[in-house]
């Protein structure tokens, strides 16, 4: 039984230590906001925060996590969808199919924590999540809007 801290709660997980965090979240904790897109850290659909840093959870095995690590998923980003990024996303109608968007928001949220006013170049360098629907233009606008709201 592994003990991990997810969205502020310590939970017990009965899964093999090699199980990636993504599948621990999705299959053991019923937190399906983090998505499976590639399984090999190429797309970012599975992005969550570990100790405030964006992590691609599909390649982050359970046995690399200790009880003191703080994991935050999209479900724990805000109580009620009120994170500035979530509000900006709603305001600008960013999502199309939406499948990539939870990962996109988590990646952007980690960026804003480190860099509250990212430039376009910062966004280009830091946001490497794939969106097949092609929402990039609104994603960029959403990050700037959220940054301005936070400021």
């Amino acid at each position: 039984m592994a003990r991990i801290n997810v969205n502020g709660k310590t939970v017990e997980v009965d899964a093999d230590g090699s199980t990636p965090l993504l599948w621990v979240l999705r299959e053991h904790l019923e937190l399906t906001g983090a998505k499976y897109g590639c399984g090999v850290a190429l797309c970012g659909a599975c992005t969550v925060h570990v100790n405030g840093e964006a992590q691609r959870s599909c390649v982050f095995p359970l046995d690399a996590i200790t009880e003191t690590d703080r994991i935050v998923t999209i479900e724990g980003l805000s109580e009620d969808g009120s994170h500035p990024l979530q509000k900006a996303w709603v305001d600008l109608d960013v999502p199309q199919c939406g499948y990539c968007q939870t990962g996109m928001i988590m990646a952007a949220a980690a960026l804003l924590e480190r860099n509250p006013q990212p430039s376009d170049a910062d966004i280009d360098a830091e946001i490497t999540n794939i969106c097949r629907c092609g929402t990039y233009r609104r994603v960029r606008a959403g990050i700037h809007q959220a940054a301005n709201e936070k400021a």
Partner: peptide, 27 residues
């Protein structure tokens, strides 16, 4: 007008086929 399907897509509540879980389900 705003899309009707955005709110759940930004909170992780939107359930896609890949996310579905039914009672007793196998994978």
């Amino acid at each position: 007008v705003k899309r009707l399907d955005t709110a759940e897509k930004v909170t992780g509540k939107q359930v896609y086929g890949a996310d579905l879980k039914l009672p007793g389900m196998l994978n």
